[in-house]
Design a protein around this nucleic acid. Sequence first.
DNA 1: CTGAAAGCGCTAACAC
DNA 2: GTGTTAGCGCTTTCAG
Lengths: 355, 355
Amino acid sequence: MSAQRTTLADVAASAGVSVSTASLAFSGSGPIADATRSRVLAAARALGYAGPNPLGRQLRRGRSGIVGVIMGDALRRAFRDPVAVQVLDGLTGTLGPLGLGVLLIPGPDDPSQPAVDPLLESAAMDVAVQMWGGTTDDPVLEMLRRRGTPTVLVEGTPQPDVAAVGIDDHGGMIELTQHVLGLGHTRIATVTMPFDRDRSEGAADPVRLAGISWEITRRRLAGVTDAGVTPTVVWETPASLVENGAAAGRALLSRPDRPTAIVCQSDLLASGVVLAARELGLRVPQDVSVAGFDGLDLPWLAPDVLTSVAQPLAEKGAAIGEAVAELLAGRTPEPRVLPVQLRIGTTTGPVPPGA
Amino acid sequence: MSAQRTTLADVAASAGVSVSTASLAFSGSGPIADATRSRVLAAARALGYAGPNPLGRQLRRGRSGIVGVIMGDALRRAFRDPVAVQVLDGLTGTLGPLGLGVLLIPGPDDPSQPAVDPLLESAAMDVAVQMWGGTTDDPVLEMLRRRGTPTVLVEGTPQPDVAAVGIDDHGGMIELTQHVLGLGHTRIATVTMPFDRDRSEGAADPVRLAGISWEITRRRLAGVTDAGVTPTVVWETPASLVENGAAAGRALLSRPDRPTAIVCQSDLLASGVVLAARELGLRVPQDVSVAGFDGLDLPWLAPDVLTSVAQPLAEKGAAIGEAVAELLAGRTPEPRVLPVQLRIGTTTGPVPPGA
DNA sequence: CTGAAAGCGCTAACAC
DNA sequence: GTGTTAGCGCTTTCAG
């Protein structure tokens, strides 16, 4: 088409005004005569000019209008997690009206990959959102700090210069565990989310338990132990998805010292455990109680309804969006901890008589 | 912290070299003495400079490194569709290594919203990907053309200056319908994806049928009719999700002239129909056959396996990524139509004797 | 191998 | 109301 993209200068020349005036015609801010504006816009239309080049505008303003969202996982896994998706939805809902766009940044996939996605070093973004916690000494947070990118940390341990949004998962987990204890269970196993980027799978030994670097995993596990339970097994999964829960369930429920209750760190994991139990011919909750965390709506588990701890997902997304807006305004948002709520379903019941 | 962000010029001054030399130290391209480079990098580290400001670089290069992905739906819905998610995953997989990031752009939500998301007018992007077809006279494509943004259209009708990636859904639908016909069915209903931004729900009358603006919906419906079937009912849904399929199923299967087979335009819709059938006490496929489209893995439908037309989702994502790369290289990628494959499951069977 | 200079396209003071 | 001017931070010729 054109050898040279048409610029605001071309439009201004064509309309017989200065560039700054032409700029005003588009930005709307600042005083400009209606007649002048429409003359500029007409010239623009005639030249096929679709509005100011965002790149020039961004450099000048020092703002890209982009919020980098670091998913807690490779995108393929992240998108399979309704928790991530619903939070993301709540977030985009508040960001959109602010004229901010979401740039997806994959989280760690496997240890063979670099620890931080290259986009994190090179992409333009005004604010970053680190979804899903973060690890101790997180290389992502370190990178962000080096770049001077204001950051919202979701489900992480509060840090000096980082905004925080989270839920009371520790408290929720205590409550959930107490519910299970109240039903008389003593042989209680727990299925956790990944410990670290290594993503091992299986029963965790004490050494491994001492080195959980995923903060959210550690905090939820602490909820179980702080409720006074020493799990018969702490089963680590490589990802918080149904199939990982199913694998955990198969393993735990085939043991000679089969637990009478399994407390899981997510609903997806828990529903996998329920499926595994059914598969093994065990009745839930008569033979084994299963509890999850998140409060998802899982219609395909019907007729069962998972006992779980509900977290306000859309509100969490909105809270993140508000924190982003605060940071952009140069303010420091207060850390927010959203409440959770124990929701008793049909998958937990009294300890079996014989056990 | 600093009143002024440190720039490449600061680093250069501190290292005692010119800005252009400092630039070379970071970009790597171009000749530079090792000693000089390390001196620059040391100075950068000392000043807490994390690398060139992307905004400056982008303006200079005329490239943002951003690919805008226009989801076919409001994000909240889009992310609930495994088809969209898996394609997106395949896409990011090929884009990542190219140093390109994905900016999420919501598609139309409901008619009360503006037809094109504001991001589309204002965000910087080198290429746009319009997922999930497009409508006739799509305002999105028009906007993109006006802005001069090279575009990849997924599942849309090929256009002069737009790259296209799609699947042979028309052919797949014909094959699927023929399979159903071969089983002896004559009372065949079909459940479609939305017709347009209005997102009506219910049996479509001839007037409405004549005005389907969602191209993908029209093409798949044409597959059914081109196989020689006149559906007893064409049921339009407001979104391609399980609950919409369930609603359709309840309605269609409660009619006096209950169809013996229901061909759906997506697996999500089809699985909703299967659930509705079970709910109504109908056996699939003994009482009613149900077929879908996409070839998703739907374990929770077990023990049923949906009869469907499988499309290569990850490959589709990769093909889109390749088209993006071509456009960025200034070339015009050939339109690509990926093959689909009929996959017969357990949800279709012979027409019931009495019917 | 290194430096000087030009300019990507735009906006925001500031002067008129 | 409108024009002039000065950069935003960087990369890339082009000389040296």
